[in-house]
Nucleic acid binder design. Structure first.
Lengths: 240, 240
DNA sequence: AAGTGGTCTAGACCACGGC
DNA sequence: CCGTGGTCTAGACCACTTC
């Protein structure tokens, strides 16, 4: 005589969904008092422990803040630090329209180091996509992506000048990206990079090499990027 | 007639402490089965929900892993990405003995931008400590730290050539560091930096500006550092 | 089949916040 | 003072894994 599971969802998750929806619908704003445990229990016809469980989960997600003796409040919107975002997403969030010029898009072979970083065994063919990134017609970065050719060869034909690689992977290839390990250092522009980015020789550049993993903990993309340092800095939050 | 709180600690926290101790004492190794909820409940003379609460907490800390139907297991040791560590700590963890040469250690005034970044109002005096960091007699970084002088003026006399600034702050000043926001870009060595680091003019450098916050969300240190790029790269993990 | 974690109940007392 | 979150009990059924 406990959980009837009318629609398959546990009661505590239904409560969480209800609270989340009220926040998304702006019925509840940050700082607002969320219904108390006892109130939620009464409303949803559920025991106190179950309502508590729901709120505890929301708290650990950072959606809600609980203050003993006072109540449960909507937490201020989370700032996402160290978030894996694509160039397109970053520009979009600043209200800028990004564009890319594809320099190279083909299948290559003979890059053993990159093949190794992507953890590939049988195959050694890679899709190589090299793009110059622009904002307002000013080039500011050169990014080269490598992906396993057996799965992603169709990317060579994709309209990546206009649409995002991340979006294409997630929508067309059903790949869910999870996290990236990056190595960052400083370097100076050599002839080719200087030419593509419109810089003088020896200009300082941020070099970023990243391996992007899918939710299955499988390496999916290797990226090496050069970023004009007057146009780009990296923001990181680190915790002790 | 529930919790008697014999020693002030809630029952579920005592259970957590017990499990943690067994792991620290190597009685339990990663992958080992932790006592089940029912077993813990029986051992500690506590109800099932309480034992569950204890394990749920340990799971959210990443100490333990729960597999439905199978059991609760000791989680593999977490790798700490994006962790705030001092130079001394980083070198120590690689088995290297770090050293620093203090270039400047004094009270200064007239740095309005840094004063602002530290969120100071009344005071504008700062402790400035500039150090060249070495490994094996090779200089590899120049770091300049600024702290509010009203609280930290004693640092001018501290033996920072030998001991860590982080350690000094935490032990002698009882300041708990919590997180840092960093901005990273690339630059090239100018005359002074080139001289101090033994580089040629125009050599690429990683520039890192960070504001380090205490657990009270109060800015405590502003650091600007220049790192030789052949000797230093930054590793970051970002999540989607 | 036995054991495990996952969910849930209908109560209870405590410490604390705000009025 | 009353309402809040925090802790806790002594049971229960379910879905799942392991054998």
């Amino acid at each position: 005589m406990a959980q009837i599971r009318r629609n398959g969802l546990p009661a505590y998750q239904k409560i969480q969904r209800a609270v989340r929806q009220r926040i998304e619908a702006k019925q509840l704003k940050p700082g607002d008092l969320v219904s108390s445990e006892r109130e939620l229990a009464r409303i949803h016809g559920v025991s106190l422990m179950t309502a508590r469980h729901a709120l505890a989960g929301l708290e650990s997600e950072g959606i809600v803040e609980r203050r003993p003796g006072a109540g449960t409040f909507v937490a201020p919107p989370r700032i996402h630090f160290n978030k894996l975002t694509s160039y397109t997403e970053q520009m979009g969030s600043r209200g800028l329209t990004p564009s890319s010029k594809i320099v190279v898009a083909k299948i290559i072979e003979g890059e053993p180091e990159i093949v190794a970083r992507l953890g590939l065994v049988g195959t050694s063919d890679l899709v190589k996509i090299e793009r110059v990134r622009h904002t307002a017609d000013e080039p500011f970065a050169l990014e080269t992506c490598y992906l396993p050719a057996d799965e992603f060869s169709a990317l060579v034909e994709a309209p990546l000048g206009r649409s995002s690689l991340f979006a294409t992977l997630e929508h067309d290839f059903k790949v869910e990206l999870a996290y990236a390990d990056e190595e960052v250092d400083a370097t100076v522009a050599d002839g080719r990079v200087a030419h593509l980015l419109g810089l003088r020789l020896g200009a300082p550049l941020l070099r970023m090499r990243q391996v992007i993993y899918s939710t299955k903990t499988k390496p999916v993309i290797y990226v090496i990027g050069f970023y004009r340092s007057e146009r780009h800095s990296l923001f990181i939050r680190r915790y002790r």
